[in-house]
Amino acid sequence: TIDEIIKALEQAVKDNKPIQVGNYTVTSADEAEKLAKKLKKEY
Rank of each mutant, 00 (worst) to 15 (best):
A32L: 08
T27L: 14
A36F: 12
K40C: 14
E33N: 09
E4M: 12
A36R: 10
N16V: 03
I6Q: 02
K17V: 12
D3W: 15
Q20C: 14
K41G: 10
Q20M: 10
E42G: 08
I5Y: 04
E42A: 11
V13L: 07
E4V: 06
E42T: 10
G22K: 03
D15N: 09
T27Y: 15
I5W: 10
V26I: 13
A29V: 08
N23L: 08
L35C: 14
I5F: 04
K14P: 02
L39K: 01
E33T: 08
K37S: 11
T1M: 10
Q11K: 09
A32Y: 03
A12K: 02
L9V: 03
I19K: 03
K17L: 13
P18G: 12
A12M: 14
K40N: 03
V26R: 00
K41F: 12
V21Q: 01
P18T: 06
E33W: 13
Q11L: 09
Y43I: 10
A8G: 04
K40D: 01
D15Y: 13
Q20F: 07
K7F: 11
D3H: 11
T27V: 11
P18F: 08
A29H: 04
K14L: 12
Y24F: 12
D15V: 05
K14V: 10
E31T: 02
A29N: 03
A12C: 12
A12V: 11
N23V: 10
V26P: 02
I19S: 02
A36W: 14
P18D: 03
K14G: 04
K37F: 08
N16M: 07
T25I: 14
Y24G: 01
E4N: 08
K41N: 12
K40Q: 11
E10N: 07
N16I: 03
T1K: 08
G22H: 07
K34F: 13
T27C: 15
V26F: 06
L39W: 03
Q20K: 13
N16W: 13
I2A: 04
I5A: 02
A32I: 06
E10W: 15
V13T: 05
K37G: 05
V21H: 02
T1D: 09
T1C: 15
D3L: 15
K38D: 05
V26Y: 05
D30E: 15
E4W: 14
A36P: 00
E42N: 09
I19P: 02
V13N: 03
I19Q: 03
N16F: 15
K14C: 11
E31I: 04
N16Q: 07
D30L: 10
Y24K: 03
